[in-house]
Write a protein that binds this DNA or RNA. Structure first.
Lengths: 205, 205
DNA sequence: TACGGTCTAGACCTACTAGTCTAGACTGGT
DNA sequence: ACCAGTCTAGACTAGTAGGTCTAGACCGTA
């Protein structure tokens, strides 16, 4: 994990780790800053010297988490080129997310918990800053899907678009489907099957 | 809305309505009992005479919400008989949920917000009581699906099962896909398309 | 009128919250 | 040796949380 280098202090990384856990477990509002500081072993003074408030700590972690997520998507793009099958893209994305979940567990849990903030003011507040970029990336995906001509044309484009957006953004949530499966290979296999369902459905034909 | 008749008091229904809103907006922990009581216009004394604590109020509302949800599923069953196509069942379920969302908005929002409690202790605590029944209902659904022979056999049964369970339990979450669509008919049409995707996929073939 | 049970109001309690403020420890420069 | 800037500790504030407790309103019965 690499964090901002500026304004760094001794226990900075430990603070981030502790905060990631606390926020993931309890959500933004319910997370206790006091508890975070206590578990980190730093004082109020130290904290408020480096951060404006609780919210700044949260957004700091979030921008890191989103940065990683963005890089995952970019990675999926670059590995495939822009001409590729949308389902292959989804699959690459799934693989990357699984990698993410295993290698950056704290950040992964944190972004899962952030998704649950939807509807709360902190979500809107923070998300507004990232929305344009996210929307841009999605319209890119949608364009790829539309132009490739691989999508069914007997289904309203709007439904296809929204469904794709849903599955792309909630992949990690859907991953919870197979939560207790600790074996990475099996998880990957199941995940491929799930995307196969999205591609060709559950029904025998 | 019909509530328990026993131990009823004048502003009981108003209390429930206020509490549903507060819990839906802020989640269990963040919801302020003080605020609920203030907005209802009853005192601590009144509340604690009728309820043991905040949790009992929550579970009371939840059992009502789950009861309604269960009835929806039963309704889907009875309207179709047990021989029916699993996708038809999903569609009936979707229609019922849309009906639910429009006619019991408070309860609907409340169950959406309850789903977000997943991972919190209140969720596990409350859910444990309902889990056996829910699992029973689901194995019923899975059996219908398996016996009917309409599901693909080139996909691991476990993935199919879990996916079905996911879609049945998260239908209302997926409904958020089309959140801003206020036109019921259009919503219904889009929903049918979405289930068509689950059935035959997004890919042209 | 007087009693006893049902119900209600709201002051009060302890625990905890995010955030402020002051005293002082430590450091490098002169 | 002294000073100024950087950084830290933790007591403190104001506010809110869920929950307790007591005084008394109200009502049917006798």
């Amino acid at each position: 994990m690499i964090f901002l280098e500026t304004d760094s202090f001794e226990k900075e990384n430990l603070l981030y780790e502790t905060a990631l856990k606390e926020f993931s477990e309890k959500g933004y509002k319910n997370a206790s800053l006091n508890s975070i500081l206590k578990n980190t072993g730093i004082s109020k003074g130290t904290f408020y010297y480096h951060f404006q408030n609780k919210e700044e700590l949260y957004t700091c972690l979030l921008s890191k988490a989103l940065e990683i997520k963005k890089q995952l998507l970019e990675k999926s793009f670059s590995e495939n080129g822009l001409e590729c099958d949308i389902f292959l893209l989804l699959q690459m994305q799934a693989e990357n997310i699984i990698e993410y979940a295993f290698n950056h567990k704290l950040f992964y849990d944190f972004s899962v918990s952030f998704a649950k903030e939807k509807g709360n003011s902190i979500y809107e507040k923070v998300m507004n800053g990232f929305k344009p970029e996210i929307d841009k990336t999605f319209s890119k995906i949608i364009n790829i899907a539309a132009e490739s001509g691989t999508l069914r044309d007997d289904i309203p484009m709007e439904v296809l678009e929204r469904s794709l957006k849903y599955f792309f953004t909630n992949l990690s949530d859907i991953l919870e489907l197979f939560y207790e499966i600790k074996d990475k290979e099996k998880l990957l296999e199941y995940y491929k099957s799930f995307i196969e369902i999205l591609k060709n459905g559950m029904s025998k034909h």
